[in-house]
Design a protein around this nucleic acid. Structure first.
Length: 185
DNA sequence: GTGCAGATCCCCT
DNA sequence: GGGGATCTGCACG
């Protein structure tokens, strides 16, 4: 399990550090796991693209809560996205969006959840991986540092981190807060 | 292979 | 009442 202190750093730093870590999801005795391969940082008053740019609301309150917990939101009428609350202690809000994972265990279950057998299309997008891992609003605020049905542990080593603008936003597109790795498979 | 419209609902203004 | 940190299928070439 990654300790609470792992998430107690600048949001961009955590977004980079969490690459290569492992998400573990347990559903009725079936274990699904995957390596985090793409993330984005969403901050606070210095980030107009962040849900926490304005004041705290019912929707974004998890981003103001304890680090190491999940922030799950619903968007476009049909999709959930999964974030991990992470920020420097002096900052009031922030989270890391998990955009993509590389499946390890439970691939059959993932295929069933996704309704496809195309390996490249299983978990390579923020809404795809929540569908694959059955992450929904019920997981809003869950503690990811505790062994449970959804948590994050240490993962694998990786090499170069690729940096890009964030995807799908219209504000603050000058910030290079999207991070990716390639893993050998 | 690329591009765009439609799906569909919750939360903020 | 409107827009959104998206995905998919279908049309076109």
């Amino acid at each position: 399990m990654l300790p609470r202190e792992f998430y107690d750093k600048d949001t961009v730093t955590v977004a980079r550090n969490i690459l290569g870590k492992r998400i573990i999801r347990k559903i009725k005795g079936i274990e699904i796991s995957g390596i985090i391969t793409e993330t984005e940082a969403y901050k606070h008053t210095d980030d107009p693209a962040s849900h926490a740019f304005g004041k705290q609301t019912d929707r974004n309150k998890a981003m103001f809560g304890d680090v190491g917990h999940a922030y799950v939101y619903f968007t476009y009428g049909m999709h959930y996205c999964f974030n991990v609350v992470a920020r420097h202690p002096k900052i009031k809000a922030g989270a890391v969006l998990i955009r993509s994972i590389e499946p390890e265990k439970g691939i059959n279950k993932i295929k069933k959840n996704r309704g496809t057998i195309n390996l490249k299309n299983l978990t390579n997008g923020p809404a795809k991986l929540t569908q694959a891992l059955e992450i929904t609003r019920k997981h809003y605020g869950v503690d990811l540092t505790k062994d449970s049905k959804l948590h994050i542990t240490d993962g694998i080593k990786h090499e170069k981190i690729y940096t890009s603008p964030r995807v799908g936003i219209k504000k603050a597109t000058d910030k290079l807060w999207n991070f990716k790795i390639n893993i050998k498979s």
